[in-house]
Design a protein around this nucleic acid. Structure first.
Lengths: 229, 229, 229, 229
DNA sequence: TATGAATGAGCGTTCATTCAT
DNA sequence: TATGAATGAACGCTCATTCAT
């Protein structure tokens, strides 16, 4: 009965987290039941509450931690790279490799934002904006330096991130193309897209203020049980 | 309640369909309850079953009808256009406009495929493949004719569709940029992406797949015309 | 549009009755839905209410009419037969043939008494008692005349009727044994049972007052809709 | 509500089983709602699912367990009895006492077979066949040894079991007649029925099957002993 | 730390029944 | 006579969550 040093509580917590990612990835947050999750880690469902406050917080923890990890690693990868083109390539490569490696986390973060309660979603959206800001900064810098033909960096940012992120919708390890090859292909598309055809391209308003950007959010919502506190 | 004069089943059916789209868009399929839906159209929840067999079929009907509409209109838009570049621009413009106009349907079709039962999902995926096939065909044609630099048309197809579809994640009517402007921006990114830096540049160097295209310069070619203006 | 003389309303009513018997026989009263019934006769379920007041009354009509038919025919068959043994044989033969011929009605009358509301059940039970009274009378007469060895006519009545009625639980037309053969077998069992082994049989109290006899009844019961009136 | 001291799952399970038997007996399986059942044992309806998989399985468990109990006890009661007549009496007495003691279970097992799903019904019917096989074996043995006049043991089995089982339709404890008296009466009917009017009487004359046995006289044989008293 | 019994709310769905047309 | 849209209630069942042990 004596517990191992360090307790296996931490181990259980980690198992729950991983099982949560797996099940939310597979079934979606709404469709995953805590009974399933508990079964996956060999607990009774009530026992899960030693490890999280409620189902919503489990999702939030997973998504927020993922976003912080993504952001932190992206910043680390870009550190020391100053040339806009090199930064763009580094960003694209990082993003692609990350999305091919941690597909489940990424998928969840993209799909389940809608399932987060307002406050939680706000936190996650803020992190995402910071992440998008990295790319937007690169594009602006490149445009300023005349190496990129990007009239609307914000729009281009959304477009490029959508394209790169899309890889996690179809990529599966062990396919015909290696990660390196895929990085090359996607990066080529991105780079060519922003370096453009040259001086003939029509330019649009160079300074672009806020665009409307809203994710359809799940309102208060009839949760089945009144969360306490 | 006495029935409103002139009110009839067909009208109710349409109201249910629209409310369904709205609520699935807002909350997600799993999170939308039929009581919510019924309330939205002023019915008891049981009465909905005059109009669909079950919740799952409501989703399927919405998604399948959307996909058939999308596919049909895309094919119609491409009809008679034979030049690969013109076809690519037409496709991009069509896709973008459609996604800016019918955001909810598009969003649902992308997000809720997971919620479809196997048989239904198979039908929808087949339709999606046909739709992707349109773009893939264009890219292959362009590559064959030497006007596009596309080594992997399938990958490029996924990448481009992801990029274009992403617009429905942030676009809201009435924003600073008009639909025409957005079409121009996105189409530029796509066209430049596939026409590449010029015919001389090596694409996907077989020995060094990663970052194979270091050539930053881009010789002038083709202007960013607004397709299908 | 001009209706045939005699109207086909009567024909529809009869079709509903028959379909009702068939479906209640097959699924049970509780399990049969009025939608099923309506579909069987090619109507909308609401239209059925032109032909009966409600589902309960349909059952009641079927069971009561059946019981009256059974009783009437039994009395007719016994008319003019005065010898107790001949009457017993006639009763048994009638009961068996009736139960082999109208299995569905008989089955319903036995199984669905429980589904009748109190007042309806009272009517049906009274009819059944009259029917049982026919046999009981025969047994008493035979006992009085010394030809039957029956100490408890009421008990013997229940026993014999149970035995004879049981045939509808397994008999199917076209089986190895003909109706005549089965009548012979069952009648033999009955006759031998009541004529007994002779003077050695121990006798019980000759005058038997009321026995407890109660069918477990379905109490008021949460009907789904408040019946009007 | 705080759990009663000492209350536990096993006790609740038993309470549910008993309440289930009671309510199915009273209302029928289809007509019994799980909310009724839950109320009967002081639970919320959803809590019942800790104790059975679903409503159908509750019924199946009840019926199957009953049939196994019935079969096991019948076999135990017949063990060591070898004379056919003694076995017949033992069987009848056992069956009657069992049916007077466990009326609800017996009633359910007879009435609700129809409500069992195919697989479950197959299991129960097989058990019932084994039970009927006990009586059929006795009748065949008696017929072989010349002590019973039974031309069709299968038919006689059905007839006798129907007769004996019928007791649970009207018997109520505390009535005028004791269980012993009723056992004597019914057993007498059965024994006389199968031993017949004497060894000389023709059984089932092949040419004139109907009413084949007109011989009213019954030579003295065997007394109506109370089996297993 | 974990169990397991239980809650209370809500879910998708079916049903008998009503009634304007 | 019949339709068909709608009701309102209940059904079997699942769920997130609580809490005494």
């Amino acid at each position: 009965m004596a517990r191992t040093i360090g307790s296996n509580g931490a181990r259980t917590a980690e198992a729950i987290r991983q099982a949560g990612v797996k099940l939310i990835y597979k079934h979606g947050y709404e469709a995953m039941s805590l009974r399933q999750l508990a079964a996956e880690v060999g607990l009774q469902s009530g026992s899960l509450y030693k490890y999280f406050e409620n189902k919503q917080n489990l999702l939030f923890d997973i998504v927020r931690d993922h976003m912080e990890d993504l952001l932190g690693k992206a910043e680390a990868d870009l550190e020391g790279v100053s040339d806009p083109l090199a930064r763009l390539k580094a960003f694209a490569a990082f993003h692609l490799r990350y999305h091919m490696t941690r597909m489940a986390h990424v998928f969840i973060a993209n799909m389940e934002i809608r399932s987060l309660e307002d406050e939680h979603r706000a936190v996650v959206v803020a992190l995402r904006r910071r992440y998008e800001g990295l790319l937007e900064g690169i594009l602006r810098q490149g445009a300023d330096e005349g190496v990129f033909q990007v009239a609307e960096p914000k729009v281009a940012t959304y477009a490029i991130i959508s394209m790169l992120t899309g890889i996690c919708m179809w990529y599966r390890p062990g396919g015909r193309l290696s990660q390196d090859e895929l990085v090359a292909i996607y990066t080529g598309l991105v780079v060519d897209g922003v370096t453009g055809p040259g001086p003939l391209a029509p330019r649009l308003a160079p300074e672009a203020p806020e665009l409307a950007r809203e994710i359809p959010a799940a309102p208060p919502r009839k949760s089945r049980t009144k969360a306490r506190a």
